[in-house]
Design a protein around this nucleic acid. Structure first.
Lengths: 339, 339
DNA sequence: TACGGATGTGTGAACGTGCACACAGTAGGA
DNA sequence: TCCTACTGTGTGCACGTTCACACATCCGTA
């Protein structure tokens, strides 16, 4: 079976022939240079006439530049379907890249088959750089990027193995600490946490911040450990906390979805919020405002995270070396009704 | 300021030199052909030694094939942040393309600036085809794809202007009719609808199905028209229905999120579900199972939609001409507790 | 011996682009 | 008059790959 030939498209040669000039002159019209007014007019007419569109593949080959940056999502299953922020991060990155006239291409790595193919894609000259979003810190693709020394930026914690790649994220420890302190200043004394995803840095750090805020008041018993950042986990986690200590008067949920689940469990148990129990969440996602009462939570600047990561890549493409330390964006507390 | 040269990477020439053979032989090892065992061994050793990665841009230029397919999301703002299915559709498409060893690259069109850049990208040889997901049926990018005669497939309704491009979707009219009939067989007689997004085909069709199911029972007054498929719209829409007729005993919500909002409004009004009022949704998203009671709804086979769209593109890449009529995937009713 | 097929290898051209270079004409100043 | 600077144009090459073709060797058979 012979593959169908994609239809022949006009090239600079065709334009040159149509306008009665040479390829070089056409190139100068497209890319700037000395061209006479007549030649320019003839060429521009020819371009629209033959419907010319430049061939990116050829340009990328010659220029070693594709004007494209990959947005690589590792473990999309958990990220795309659970994480309320991933969409906003993408849009933020796209907006920033768009302003710099770069194309964002989003790649998804789900299987080992994907890993290999994406690695090939990244190394093949189709993209000039990469933004990597990963749920966990270790992934084979990260080594590939590191080996290729492809200009890159991480969203979230960078992998231990390559500290030379810059990253952008939020201060999970500090934010968790701040929101827990809000519960304390509200007079809560028996405070529990529904901690999720303790196999990820975000989960670990939020727990660490909680512990730091409570200091001597911290009680291991008052931490319910659930696997995911989702609603169901919140219901289960809150029931567990109530079972362990019915005098609980404050709860820090590791995400808004969890907080929403906690509200449901508290309603079941006949507790009022914020009267009997103060509840705070994390993310400032759409969950926060659709709950009854609306959630006091930590705002994640998702759009800014995306655009910041894009800037980190663009800066490297301009030849600058960003300090590898990474960048933590501010996470303002959003005070609503739940605590 | 001079642009930094991306570091020089090994090419087939380097491998040939290292292995003491010619470029042609290297190419044959990579792409198949008669090669002696010694030559093959030497070349494979050389490949790993110099860390060769093939240059996709050069390959795409020569082969006129990039082995990549674009996943274009028009109006990502509403889709990414509102639509619970878009992530699953993407993953479904990615899985199908992955099996055919094609790379899915997701592009996002948000501004007019994006439109132009993505059009260039699509026409530049970086992708062999495109899957287009659009909230609305009209968009400038569609004309571009049509003009380029790029192998493509639409998710949802195809634009009127080009019926030659195949599409995949669900039968919104039939599904809405079926779920409304479920309310009728449950004995409900005063049935309202919270209709959303009446500027899109999906919204229009769901309303049409509702009307068809009710027949003479249909009452214009019992349709609350809300702008979006979201929770807040559901709350508002349900309040409106209750105000118009307190005897309402059944509600078809145009999405699960809306249904969730409706449940909240009914709780406010002291109505029990499904006792006083039966509520059904649409999508079978995560909303459906996190509601109290869990929603009876229409299952959208999002993953299958994605993989089906991918197949439509892949088939064209193989030179087949899929019937342009389009494909509607089955949408089973999921019976839970809300009606 | 001569021939044809199967197996193995090297060479040249082409994909479409951008850039370095060569070249030509004009104008102005030493 | 010659040299330089500026504007404008054409040609050749390179980017890294694949493929068609030419050539070379070996074996079995007419």
């Amino acid at each position: 079976m012979s593959r169908p030939q994609p239809q022949k498209r006009a090239t600079v040669h065709d334009i040159a022939a149509a306008a009665g000039v040479s390829r070089g002159t056409v190139s100068r019209v497209l890319n700037g240079g000395y061209v006479s007014a007549e030649a320019r007019a003839a060429i521009e007419a020819a371009i629209t006439e033959v419907g010319y569109v430049p061939n990116n593949a050829a340009r990328a080959l010659k220029m070693r530049r594709s004007q494209a940056v990959a947005f690589v999502t590792l473990e999309p299953h958990s990220l795309f379907l659970d994480d309320p922020n991933i969409g906003s991060i993408m849009l933020g990155a796209n907006a920033a890249l768009s302003l710099a006239d770069h194309q964002m291409v989003s790649l998804v790595v789900e299987s080992s088959r994907d890993t290999e193919r994406v690695a090939r894609y990244l190394s093949g000259g189709f993209v000039d750089g990469a933004i990597v979003v990963s749920a966990r810190t270790q992934d084979p693709i990260i080594k590939v990027i590191s080996d290729l020394s492809l200009p890159a930026a991480f969203v979230g914690h960078p992998p231990e193995l390559d500290r030379t790649i810059p990253f952008v994220g939020i201060d999970n420890v500090g934010s968790a600490r701040a929101i827990t302190e809000h519960l304390l200043t509200g007079g809560r004394r028996r405070i529990g946490m529904i901690a999720a995803a303790l196999d990820r840095d975000s989960g670990i750090d939020r727990l660490a911040g909680f512990r730091a805020a409570l200091g001597p008041l911290f009680d291991e018993e008052m931490v319910a450990d659930v696997p995911h950042y989702d609603y169901g986990s919140g219901v289960k986690g809150m029931r567990e906390l109530l079972e362990r200590d019915r005098s609980v008067d404050g709860v820090f949920a590791a995400s808004d979805a969890i907080a929403a689940g906690a509200l449901e469990a508290l309603r079941e148990a006949g507790r009022s919020v914020p009267g009997d129990v103060g509840v705070v969440g994390f993310d400032d996602s759409t969950w926060a405002v659709r709950c009854q009462p609306q959630l006091t939570t930590v705002h994640q600047p998702a759009k800014e995270i995306g655009s910041c990561a894009a800037q980190l890549v663009l800066r490297q493409l301009r030849g600058e070396h960003p300090d590898p330390g990474g960048q933590l964006l501010p996470t303002p507390l959003v005070l609503r009704d739940s605590a």
